[in-house]
Structure formats: structure tokens, C-alpha cells
Write a protein that binds this DNA or RNA. Structure first.
Lengths: 332, 332
DNA sequence: CTGAAAGCGCTTACAG
DNA sequence: CTGAAAGCGCTTACAG
């Protein structure tokens, strides 16, 4: 017996069979005699053999890994989507390589290289701010699923909620509570979710005979102080605002602090509704009324679409999956 | 020219050199003539060649990936540590495979297999609740760094804050504010951080001539309703409590709601200090006074220790790194 | 400075 | 049911 032996070879020698047979046993190939099988398994157990998956990966030309790219982990919104994606990836026996761009889309290159160099077999892009033509090229070449944000015109698999409907329902909720002067802190960029919800907002106003006032729709910010200032500006300029829709829980929680500092009561003076339904919405005081997105499922379902693509060699019709949201009526 | 060619081979043929030379160019081997080098690079650019890292991995017996295992992504505390680890992993040119146990340590097996099968070269264990003897075996065999929680007696690389000092300082803060009856919502398990902070608490009491009252130290919970009940119980039984230390921001935010419901004012009736300094501590109203942990750095430094191990083939003395925390005095 | 060749540890088509 | 052998796409010691 030599000093160094490759593991599969070692098992083969100890069991007096060929490496081919050991490989077949490991892969549950039925064509192995039960007796042989047992003998091999005994040796494997004995020497605690573990296959070198680096070799298997090369041989099969499959890494068994997929990546999930999000802007940042610092926002519970994305963390929860990742949690769902993780779960689905594990459930399907894959490994998850998680990437974050920290809102710098140049960082995406690193993760695209993972696709190009066979480190991952496919990718989930969550709310990434990519140029449409760049995305289009990637989609043509690799199995990719979009989560949350997508491009209407692009033939791409994606998972999201019905943002127009959600925006409409949020507005309707405030209207039903008697609010007529509803301001809107919208998302910064012109993404599908931002524009969709705004459409829903406008439709609700129109359906209720209320004129749309562009002064009441302002871009938000994830920067604490910046957003506080934005809120103070709008409430000082527009004294009769009695309702507020905010694009995300995080921004809503910051907005609430600013509103309280102005001496306004929530919800008596200003009723608030936000989007997302993250842990933030439960922790604020008063707790946030919010359009709860199925964050975990958004991630989970995205991976399911991706796995389907992988199984069928990327030859599938690209589904656009719309998941249901839920209006969580709480205290604002 | 054949229909199918391996990529490296293809570059070699087009550039009229051997695959060895192409490989040398790709790996910046200095022994290549500049002219040859240019020729090869031109071809690589031309056909947009990307190496198949699956092959490289096998050949070098290195996956270029490390894993970072956390209990869950649903807690911003862990998400922020992961963010730091991510950054360090990327900065060092590695890929990050992120795993979550969802508090079920059986799930760890999947990630340990990643080590055994060469999918990852090392791992960061963040706040994992593993049996000491199991951990000991793993540490002997693979490059592993512990983050947050560790075992004092174990010879293992780890990164954390000085929990005894932090617990002491938190208590001192309340004492200095004139609070004398300080309750303590401790962590559920007897981990290093939980026990360390408690020691610091007891020392502060002793140093100030206050007798330790075991009734005032109760185990917390991450379950919303359960924790609310715990809080109500203690405040109804012990009417003179005027200060509260809570093991985490999340639990502190839930505690605050319960305390308010009891009609007590924060901080007038009950001053509160918590640990972590996550986004939660900024968003509550009033905002939480908290022992801010260097979460990002905790993750970043853990990876640095791990990378050092990898570079030196795991032959390094195991460092125990203590990072500074910061007392963020806010409104509670 | 460059090339031919071995080899990383698996899987699988082929032959028996 | 089993084995011998080719091959996945790289890197690198060796020879020149």
C-alpha cells in the first residue's frame, strides 16, 4: 500500500473493487450488486470517506452553487428575501453564494464573473439597478431570475408583488379612513415597484374624485438626516396633509420621528401606511400599518424558478410570478 | 479546427503557443517573453476567454471560497456581521458561502460537509450553539474562526468584545443616572457573552454597595408575546425597578412596548440600556441607549484571522481578538 | 523563455 | 453487474 492514495482509489483498493464501482455506489447507481454495495459502504464508513466535490464539479461541469445578489444586507427587507432564497437553495441541495453590491453596480462584475467562470450555475438578482441592455445580454447567456424589480419589456423570469394594486390599496386604506390630503414619499429611482405603486396611488385618487397634486409626491432617501429634512419640508409647506404613504418601512420609521418632532400626532393628525412589512414595522411606536410583502416567499420562489431553469438547461418560458401581499392594519 | 475545443486549448491554438504558456500568462508568470504575452492577451481579449475555475480549483485543491455560518439572517445583528465578513472575503478575492442554521444546530452538518468535501477552505462560526467537544474536533481539522461567542478553555481563534467590561459599563451608566433597582433581561443560554455581561453587572452592583437580587435577573426570549409577558411579570412583581438592562436591541424594543403598556414612562420611570447598536436602536421611540458593538468589524476581523490561517496552512497561534465597543447615549 | 506530459479526483460510455 | 480507460480544463515540475 502506498503512502498517498486518492480517496476514491483508497476505498476501491480496500473493498477490492474498481473506482468505477465505488463511484456507482456513491451515486446510488442501481446496477451494483447488493453484496458489493454493502462491502463498499462498509469501507466508506470505516475510513470516513468524503468525496472531493472539486473533482466531481469539474467532471460534471456543474458547481452545484447559485448566487443571490442583493444591494445590501443592512436592510432587513433584503435580509429576509435572502433568508427565503437560502432556504430554497438548501432544500434543493445547492449551495448559496451571496453577493452584495452596496448600491455600487460596478461591484456586480465580480458576481457576473462567478457565472462566467462556472463558479455558480445561475443567479438571482434582487432589486438591482442595472442598465436594461446590460441585463439583457446577461439574461441571454445565463440562467437568471429577477426578484422585486424587473423590466416590463424584457423577456425574463421574475417574481414580485402587484405593485400597482398595492399602491392603490394603500391609498384606498387612507381614503377610507377619511384622509383626503395624502402625501407620498416615493422611492428614489424609477423602478417598476416605484412607478407601479405611484400609478395605483393616482388611480385611487382619481376614482375618488381627488385631484393629483405633484407637490405631494417627493423622493425619499435612506439617509436618516436627509429624510428627516424632506419630511419637515413637506409638512411645513403643506399644512393640511393628513395622510402619508411611504415607500418602505425603514423610511416610514424615520418619517415618524420627524413628524412627531413637528408636534403632530400619529395617526390622529397624520395617518401613515408603508410598504414591506419588515421587523421594523412591528417595532416602531406606534406600530406601522403596512403593505406586508411576502419577503421570504419572494426569495424562495425566485430560487424555484431558477432551479427549474437549471434542470431544463435554461430552455423554459420565462414566467412572471406575482405573489400576494397583505395589508397589515396596525396603529398608524 | 475542430468543432469543440477546451478553452485554454483554443487560446493556445489561436496564439500558436502551448497551453502551458497561456496558463502562465493568465497567472502573471514573469517567465513569459513580453511579445508572447501580448500575443496571448490579444487572443484572450478577442475571444473573450474566461478560465473554467472548476478545473483550476481541482488542480490547485483550493476552492477559493469560505463559509460564514450564522443562526439567522432575520436579525439585523447577524446581518451586519455578515456584511462585514462579506466585505473582507471580497477584499481578499474569496467567495462567500453563507449558511444559516435557523437555530437548529443539526443544520450545521450541511455546512460542515462543505469543509469536508473541499467546497470551502475554512469557516466563520458566528454565535453558534455547538457542543464544545464537537467544536473541538472540527477546530483540530479545519481552519475555523469563532465570532461573538467562544469557549474560554478552547484553543481557538475568535473575535468578540469584552463582555464583562461591557456589562459593567452598562450597569454603571444606569447607576450614575441614579438608578438603584436595576433589572436585567439576560440571554437565554449560558454563552460567553451572556455570562460575561452578567459578571460585569454583578461587579458594578457590588462596587456600589448594592446587593445582587437574583429575582431581578430573568431570561429573555426572542418571541414577541413571550417577552412581553416576561416583562409584565417582572414589573408587576417588583414595583420599584427603575432601570433595565436588556441583552439585545431587539428584545429591548419589545420590552419598551410592554413597559409603556404598563403606563410607565421611559426613561423617567424606567431607564433602559441594551446591547448591540443595530438599526433597531435608532428606530425605536425613544431611541435606545445601547452598547454598540462593532458588528461590521467583528465580521471583517474574523475573516482576516481566517485568511491568515489559510495562508499559513492553519499553522498559526490562535488569536483571541477583543474589539472595542461604544456606549451610545441616546434617549432611554 | 517555452513545450510535452503528468496529474488533480472524480464520472461514465463502452466492452465484456 | 463490473472494470479499464478516457476525459473534465486547468497547473507545474521537468527538460531543453
Amino acid at each position: 500500500m502506498e503512502v498517498f492514495m486518492s480517496s476514491l482509489k483508497e476505498v476501491a483498493q480496500l473493498a477490492n473493487v474498481s473506482v468505477a464501482t465505488v463511484s456507482r455506489v456513491l451515486n446510488n447507481d442501481t446496477k451494483v450488486k447488493l453484496e458489493t454495495r454493502k462491502k463498499v459502504l462498509r469501507v466508506i464508513e470505516e475510513i470516513d470517506y468524503k468525496p472531493n466535490l472539486l473533482a466531481k464539479n469539474l467532471r460534471k461541469q456543474r458547481s452545484n452553487a447559485v448566487s443571490i445578489i442583493v444591494p445590501t444586507m443592512a436592510n432587513p427587507f433584503f435580509a429576509e428575501i435572502v433568508r427565503g432564497a437560502q432556504a430554497a437553495i438548501n432544500d434543493n441541495g445547492y449551495n448559496a453564494i451571496i453577493g452584495t453590491t452596496e448600491f455600487d453596480e460596478k461591484q456586480l462584475d465580480v458576481y457576473v464573473d462567478l457565472l462566467k467562470t462556472n463558479i455558480v450555475e445561475g443567479a438571482i438578482f434582487v432589486s438591482l439597478n442595472i442598465k436594461e441592455n446590460v441585463l439583457k445580454e446577461l439574461i441571454n447567456e445565463y440562467p437568471i431570475v429577477l426578484c422585486n424589480e424587473y423590466f416590463d419589456e424584457l423577456n425574463v423570469a421574475c417574481v414580485s408583488i402587484d405593485n400597482e394594486k398595492a399602491g392603490n390599496e394603500a391609498t384606498m386604506n387612507l381614503l377610507k379612513r377619511g384622509r383626503k390630503n395624502i402625501a407620498y414619499i416615493r422611492g428614489k429611482y424609477n423602478t417598476t415597484s416605484v412607478l407601479g405603486r405611484l400609478l395605483g396611488y393616482k388611480r385611487a385618487l382619481k376614482d375618488n374624485g381627488i385631484e393629483y397634486n405633484s407637490k405631494w409626491v417627493v423622493k425619499g432617501s435612506n439617509n436618516f438626516c436627509e429624510l428627516q429634512q424632506i419630511i419637515k419640508n413637506i409638512f411645513e409647506n403643506e399644512k393640511n396633509i393628513d395622510g402619508l404613504i411611504v415607500h418602505s418601512d425603514i423610511q416610514a420609521s424615520i418619517s415618524m420621528k420627524a413628524i412627531k418632532e413637528l408636534g403632530l400626532r400619529i395617526p390622529e393628525d397624520v395617518a401613515i401606511i408603508s410598504f414591506d412589512g419588515t421587523i421594523i414595522s412591528k417595532i416602531t411606536d406606534p406600530s406601522l400599518t403596512t403593505i406586508s410583502q411576502p419577503l421570504f416567499d419572494l426569495g424562495y420562489t425566485s430560487v424555484e424558478l431558477l432551479i427549474e431553469k437549471l434542470k431544463k438547461n435554461n430552455n423554459v418560458v420565462n414566467k412572471k410570478v406575482i405573489l400576494p401581499y397583505r395589508l397589515d392594519k396596525r396603529e398608524t
